[in-house]
Write a protein that binds this DNA or RNA. Structure first.
Length: 272
DNA sequence: ATCTATTCCTGGCTGC
DNA sequence: TGCAGCCAGGAATAGA
């Protein structure tokens, strides 16, 4: 499930292959394309040149010579580069998009693969409104701004999942950050003591940096654009460890539902 | 305004 | 063994 570290890894792995390339042809399954964009997307992309690729939150922004292509990988989306369009491993029923690039060099194609089809792609004249309403980048936000934004009566876990609060933290890294900070997921954000808020700010940045350094977490089938797995899942201390002993105190990790999301925490290390 | 529940989707797992 | 049924969840949206 691509969150900030996974999307960052995808962008880093794909950017060197795409910058400066011309899109000869683009084809998509309708479901992959944001509604309202379905009739015109392929036509708008043909002939465009890719200027740069950046990550913003969990979104991938491809800046073109005309407009911006915005991609969200959803739960199971992946971008893959390939020398040719007929690589057997990349052309199954889950391939929902294909960009044919100029023939001046390899890779010749960029493919979008997504079994659960939660990912979306859209073209907008400038930055997508979906991206514009994102909150700050977790790796850039200062402690002061973070503390200021915490002043809300929401449960801290729910707030971490809110992309207009912070952009890019999802279920895995919310649980891991709260564990690292020793904060209960149901704690009310605005009532966190200053030192605990500071610990959370620090934990989020440490966890995300470490996850990026490991190439992200490969929970199910996540791989980067070159097909490489990430390894941060072996470092998880809370997420996906229900019933297993806490790596700090040995207490079984508990799983509850917060904001409709499975939430893993240590009841002893993360007190309310 | 703010929070909660529902929807989308399929591979993988559980249990009978 | 086989298969029905459930679960996972990011973001949009409808509802409270």
């Amino acid at each position: 499930m691509p969150e900030l570290p996974e999307v960052e890894t995808v962008v880093r792995s794909v950017a060197p292959h795409l910058a400066g390339r011309r899109i000869v042809e683009a084809r998509f399954d309708s479901r992959f394309v944001t509604p309202g964009n379905r009739k015109r997307l392929a036509g708008r992309l043909a002939g465009r040149t890719i200027e740069s690729i950046q990550r913003r939150g969990k979104f991938i922004q491809v800046t073109l010579d005309q407009g911006v292509l915005t991609i969200h990988l959803g739960m199971t989306g992946s971008l893959r580069v390939s020398a040719t369009a007929d690589a057997p491993a990349l052309t199954g029923v889950h391939t929902h998009g294909m960009f044919t690039l100029d023939a001046t060099r390899e890779p010749g194609v960029l493919l979008y693969i997504d079994p659960r089809q939660f990912g979306r792609i859209e073209w907008t004249p400038s930055v997508s409104p979906r991206v514009a309403r994102l909150g700050p980048e977790p790796l850039e936000i200062t402690l002061e701004e973070f503390v200021g934004r915490l002043r809300r009566r929401a449960r801290v876990k729910a707030l971490l999942l809110n992309q207009s609060f912070l952009a890019g933290v999802g279920n895995i890294y919310a649980d891991e950050s709260l564990f690292a900070a020793g904060i209960h997921p149901l704690a009310i954000a605005a009532r966190l003591k200053p030192e605990r808020a500071e610990r959370l700010h620090c934990a989020i940045q440490e966890i995300l940096r470490a996850a990026i350094a490991s190439g992200g977490s490969s929970i199910s089938d996540y791989v980067d654009a070159l097909g490489e797995r990430g390894w941060f899942q072996v470092e998880h201390r809370a997420y996906g460890r229900e019933g297993e002993p806490c790596k700090v105190c040995g207490t079984p990790i508990k799983k509850i539902l917060v904001a409709q999301r499975g939430t893993h925490f240590c009841p002893k290390c993360q007190r309310r």
